[in-house]
Design a protein around this nucleic acid. Structure first.
Length: 603
RNA sequence: GCCUCCUUAGCUCAAUGGUAGAGCAACUGUUUUGUAAACAGUAGACGUUAGUUCGAUUCUAAUAGGAGGCUCCA
């Protein structure tokens, strides 16, 4: 079904045409590609005689405003294909000609529509606003210049893309710009620095995260929770090494499909000296840093014969994997080269698949909930095989049909609102992907539930069925968080660094007012520590106001002030991160309160 | 990897073709404090390498990192 076109999209698309008209004025030799509306704005791709600069953007904005003022009508004209091709050939617009030719080829169109606004003529399906004046000259802004490949293909020419934002009125534009500014403050890279959680060190290597004590504590809390939940759900834990023989990956098929994004093999069997001397050793072997955990779990399975009675087997591991992502693709914690998956493989019989899929979906939903992610902010995709492009996948058609159908069925049964995406499946099977948006609106895959009907074949996994015959099991691959790195990045942004008590690396600071309160403060600290609460003593010779300020900046859930009154009352003045001063509370009451909150994961 | 932009102290920022200035943080001392910044002092930086120039942090180029796109994302 076609998506309904919103009024604001029409406005944005019209703004894209106005931008193109401005570019035409600036560079009459410009060649035009495409210019759609997008979330919050629009873009237009150009092939230009020279590179655009920041100054050009300002000039183009002025030209756009002038075009708006001129009040050009957007005039639609239906035109036979031949005539349109002629028109754009004459205008030396090869990209438009190519677009029309493709429309003819793929959709068998006989006419195309052309929109004219003043001197600018464009191939366009429309619709548009009536006139350039319908676009508020004060409600759009050109944001940035970027490169983009023609038709999104790396092998094609890179065009220059101008991104803009457009709104119905000035107030909306300003609100949007303000929102961007606010989003920047929640950026996990910024908060990671402010709260001293992690850093990426040039000397260590790109995309490799160094976790500082507070960040590692956060990780620990998440991981502890993860283990607890898996125990409850009947999972067992396995562990596997960081490297493995290349043959393993050849057998799995990963080497054939994805060696390009693996770290190059380590040559093992020769010494460093021999390597330097260029000596090849006969029995040298190649080892790979593992880009995923599955072959190891399969090896564990294959170590002994299995019976149908053992199923389902649910084997989980927080396994660190390494993928050599292209440099330009790396981004903070969300796209890295070394990361720890909260992986699990479920090996089961055909009659168990559906139930297991359902249970994993429930597990995913409850996990998101535990971390405060509102499910509306999670996008779900059913990633299918592209039947046009079969060489990217293994396995037969029946297998694909069976596994795709069952995933769709279960997703529907669970009431998931999902979009289907062709060509996004793993090479060994279809999957359900759960993506969370970051502060800039980019979606990042976290959970994924993959139905694999191929690796068991490739690795010759078997079990004895009720008749004593050998049968192939099915295998589900799944992660809930995705990777700790990415998930923590998104979590930081979700909470803007103000983690709920159960996750906060430092839950309580104790702030003695004067020197004479140090001893009492120390007693408080010891008491809380004995209760398993993560507490820090702030004994610096600073004013109480200063200590409170830094506690607030560090987003510590509770600050306990200890002065004369508290010593007297054998309590602590509790300051809540959000509510402020709660007054003096008996220590026991506070311990009970915070322990309850930690247990309930409420705040 | 490709396109555009950015890189000054631990952090946030300033200035300049004639060897850099501040706030916070750090350190030392004084202060002993009542719910978002006590006072004084000390130490600390032009990403790297070339080029232009009498002289480069400033201009140019390369390189390394970073940001946003594109591509990719098992």
């Amino acid at each position: 079904m076609e998506k309904q076109i919103e009024k604001i999209d029409i406005l944005r698309h019209s703004a894209a045409h106005i931008l193109a008209a401005a570019v035409l004025e600036l560079m009459p030799k410009a060649k035009f590609a495409i210019g759609p509306s997008i979330e919050d704005g629009f873009y237009y791709d150009f092939d230009l005689p020279r590179a655009l600069t920041q100054e050009d953007l300002a000039v183009l904005e002025e030209k756009m405003q002038a075009i708006v003022k001129k009040n050009y009508a957007f005039e639609r004209k239906e035109m036979p294909v031949k005539e349109a091709i002629e028109l754009f050939k004459k205008a030396e617009q090869p990209y438009k000609v190519e677009l029309i030719e493709d429309l003819v080829k793929n959709q068998k169109v006989e006419t195309v529509s052309i929109y004219t606004s003043g001197p600018f003529v464009d191939l366009c399906r429309g619709p548009h606003v009536e006139s350039t004046k319908n676009v508020d000259a004060k409600a759009f802004k050109l944001m940035k210049i970027a490169g983009a490949y023609w038709r999104g293909n790396e092998k094609n020419k890179m065009l220059q893309r101008i991104y803009g934002t457009a709104w119905e009125n000035k107030a909306d534009l300003e609100a949007y710009l303000k929102k961007l500014e606010e989003a920047e403050k929640r950026d996990h890279r910024r908060i990671g620095k402010e709260l001293d959680l992690f850093h990426i060190d040039e000397q260590v290597g790109l995309g490799l995260i160094l976790w500082h004590p507070k960040g590692a504590m956060l990780w620990r809390m998440i991981e502890d929770f993860w283990y607890q939940e898996h125990m409850k759900k009947g999972y067992e834990f396995v562990r596997s090494p960081h490297i493995g023989n290349r043959k393993l990956w050849e057998q799995s098929g990963h080497w054939g499909f994805y060696s390009g994004s693996m770290y190059p093999p380590l040559e093992v069997g020769q010494s460093l000296e021999e390597l330097k001397a260029g000596k090849k050793v006969g029995e040298s072997e190649q080892y790979l840093l593992k880009p995923m955990n599955c072959p190891f779990h399969i090896a564990i399975y294959k170590n002994s014969p299995h019976s149908y009675r053992e199923f389902p087997m649910r084997w989980a591991e927080t396994g660190t994997v390494y993928r050599f992502e292209k440099k330009g693709e790396l981004s903070g914690l969300t796209r890295v080269r070394g990361f720890t998956q909260d992986d699990a493989h479920i090996i089961c019989r055909e009659d168990q698949v559906e139930g297991e899929l359902e249970e994993v979906i429930d597990f995913i939903l409850s996990t998101f909930k535990a971390f405060g992610f509102n499910f509306e902010s999670v996008k779900v995709y059913l990633s299918l095989r592209d039947p046009q492009n079969k060489e990217k996948y293994v396995g037969n058609d029946e297998g694909w049909k069976f596994s795709e159908d069952i995933l769709r069925k279960v997703a529907n049964k669970k009431g998931l609102k999902f979009e289907e995406e062709l060509g996004e499946a793993a090479f060994y099977g279809p999957k359900l992907d759960f993506k969370i948006k970051d502060v800039l609106g980019r979606e990042w895959q976290c959970s994924t539930l993959q139905f694999d009907f191929n690796l068991s074949e490739r690795f010759d996994m078997t079990f004895a069925n009720t008749k004593g015959e050998q049968e192939r099991p099915y295998m589900l691959h799944r992660v809930l968080l995705g990777s700790f790195e990415r998930f923590i990045g998104l979590l930081i942004e979700h909470y803007a660094g103000a983690f709920p008590v159960w996750l906060a690396p430092e839950q309580v600071w104790v702030l003695p007012i004067a020197e004479r309160h140090q001893e009492y403060a120390k007693k408080l600290v010891d008491l809380l520590k004995a209760e398993g609460i993560r507490v820090v003593m702030k004994s610096e010779s600073e004013t109480i106001g200063k200590k409170i300020r830094s506690g607030q900046i560090q987003k510590i859930p509770y600050l306990l002030v200890a002065g004369d009154k508290e010593v007297e009352a054998e309590g602590a003045a509790v300051r809540d991160r959000v509510k402020g001063d709660l007054g003096i509370m008996p220590v026991k009451d506070f311990v009970e309160k915070i322990k309850q909150e930690i247990k309930d994961k409420t705040r």
